[in-house]
C-alpha cells in the first residue's frame, strides 16, 4: 500500500511537470503580449519593453521556465501581473468555494444519476424507464449555461425558492451544484442502467433469489455494489470535466471560485494566474483519480493495489 502510494506520487510529479511545461509553451507562443496589456494602449514601445524586462519576459524560454519551476519548488506561484498579489494567496482564498461547489455537484450527480439508472434498470421496458432515459439524454445534451439560466429562471425568479446568486448558505449552493452536476447525472443514469442490467443477469443474483431474499434485498444488497464499481472510476475523471464547467457555472451564479479567477486571467493574459489555476486543476484531477482508485478496493475485494 505504501509502495503503491509512493509510486502514484512519483507519477503525479511527472504529470505536473509535463502539464506545466505544455501550458508554459502554449502561453509563450501565444501571439498576444502581456506586457502590452499591462502597459495599456497608449504606452510607448519603451514602456512596454521596460515592463517586459521587469517581468522577465525578454528572457529565453528555457530560462523563463526554469525560474518559474524553481519558484514552484519553494511554493512560490509568482505574482499576478495585474492584481499585484501573490497567486498562491488568490487561489487559496477562492479554492474553498470551488471545492464546495464540486462536492455539491458530485453528490447531486451521484444521487440523481444512480437513482434514475437503478429505477430504469429494475423497471426495464416500462414507460418510466423510457421517460427516465429521455430525461437523461436531455441532461447530457443541454449546454450548462442553458441549464443554469433555466434553473435560475424557474427556481429563483419564478418560484423564489433559492437565491439568484451569491455564496454563503446551503440554499446558495443548491442551484449551482445542480447545474454543474446534471450533465454527469445524465451520463451516470445511462451507465448505471446498463451496468445494473448486466449485473441483474449474473448467476449470483439468481443465487440470492434462490435463498428467498426479498426483491429490494437482492437489488440493494447484491446488485448495487457490483453495478456501482465501473462508475467509481468515472468520478475521478469528472473532476476534470468540472474544471471546464465551473468557469461557466461560477459566472452564471456569481460564485467566487477559481473558475471566475481563471476567466479574468485568461482575458488579460495574466500568465502566473493561468499557470497557477492550471496546476491546481491538474492536482485536483490527479487527486480525484487517486481517491477513486483507493475507494474501489473497499467495494470490490478482488482489486488489489500494487
Amino acid at each position: 500500500m505504501a509502495a503503491y502510494l509512493l509510486r502514484r506520487l512519483g507519477q503525479t510529479l511527472l504529470i505536473l511537470i509535463g502539464i506545466s511545461l505544455v501550458t508554459f509553451i502554449l502561453l509563450y507562443i501565444l501571439p498576444a503580449d502581456p506586457a502590452r496589456q499591462i502597459a495599456g494602449r497608449s504606452a510607448t514601445p519603451e514602456t512596454v519593453a521596460n515592463i517586459r524586462a521587469q517581468l522577465g519576459l525578454d528572457q529565453p524560454f528555457l530560462v523563463q521556465y526554469w525560474r518559474y519551476a524553481t519558484g514552484l519548488l519553494h511554493g512560490d506561484f509568482g505574482r499576478s501581473y495585474l492584481q499585484k498579489t501573490e497567486v498562491a494567496e488568490l487561489i487559496a482564498s477562492r479554492l474553498p468555494a470551488t471545492l464546495l461547489l464540486m462536492a455539491g455537484a458530485i453528490v447531486s450527480e451521484l444521487v440523481i444519476g444512480l437513482t434514475m439508472g437503478m429505477v430504469a434498470a429494475v423497471q426495464r421496458g416500462s414507460k418510466l424507464d423510457q421517460g427516465l432515459m429521455v430525461l437523461s439524454f436531455v441532461g447530457v445534451s443541454t449546454p450548462q449555461f442553458v441549464i443554469g439560466i433555466l434553473l435560475l429562471y424557474v427556481f429563483a425568479v419564478l418560484l423564489g425558492w433559492f437565491p439568484i446568486g451569491g455564496y454563503g448558505t446551503f440554499r446558495h449552493l443548491v442551484l449551482p451544484s445542480l447545474t454543474l452536476g446534471l450533465l454527469g447525472a445524465g451520463w451516470y443514469a445511462r451507465m448505471m442502467r446498463s451496468a445494473m442490467l448486466d449485473v441483474l443477469r449474473q448467476d449470483y443474483i439468481r443465487t440470492a433469489r434462490a435463498k428467498g431474499l426479498a426483491r429490494w434485498q437482492v437489488i440493494l444488497g447484491h446488485a448495487l455494489p457490483n453495478a456501482v464499481l465501473p462508475i467509481i472510476a468515472m468520478i475521478g475523471i469528472d473532476i476534470g470535466i468540472f474544471m471546464s464547467g465551473i468557469v461557466v457555472v461560477e459566472s452564471v451564479y456569481g460564485w467566487p471560485g477559481i473558475g471566475q479567477l481563471a476567466w479574468q486571467a485568461i482575458q488579460r493574459i495574466d500568465i502566473p494566474i493561468i499557470m497557477g489555476v492550471t496546476l491546481i486543476s491538474a492536482c485536483a484531477i490527479v487527486l480525484g483519480n487517486l481517491i477513486a482508485d483507493l475507494v474501489a478496493p473497499l467495494i470490490d475485494p478482488r482489486i488489489k493495489l500494487r
Binding site: 449470483y204 443465487t207 435463498k211 428467498g212 455494489p225 457490483n226 467495494i299 475485494p301
Partner: peptide, 24 residues
C-alpha cells in the same frame, strides 16, 4: 414463493465461480 425458496426448496447451480456474489 419467496418464503418457500431456501427454506423448503433449495437449489445449487453449475458454476460455483459465478454463483457467489464477488463483493460480499
Amino acid at each position: 414463493m419467496r418464503r418457500l425458496r431456501g427454506n423448503d426448496i433449495a437449489m445449487i447451480f453449475q458454476e460455483p465461480m459465478t454463483s457467489l456474489n464477488p463483493v460480499l
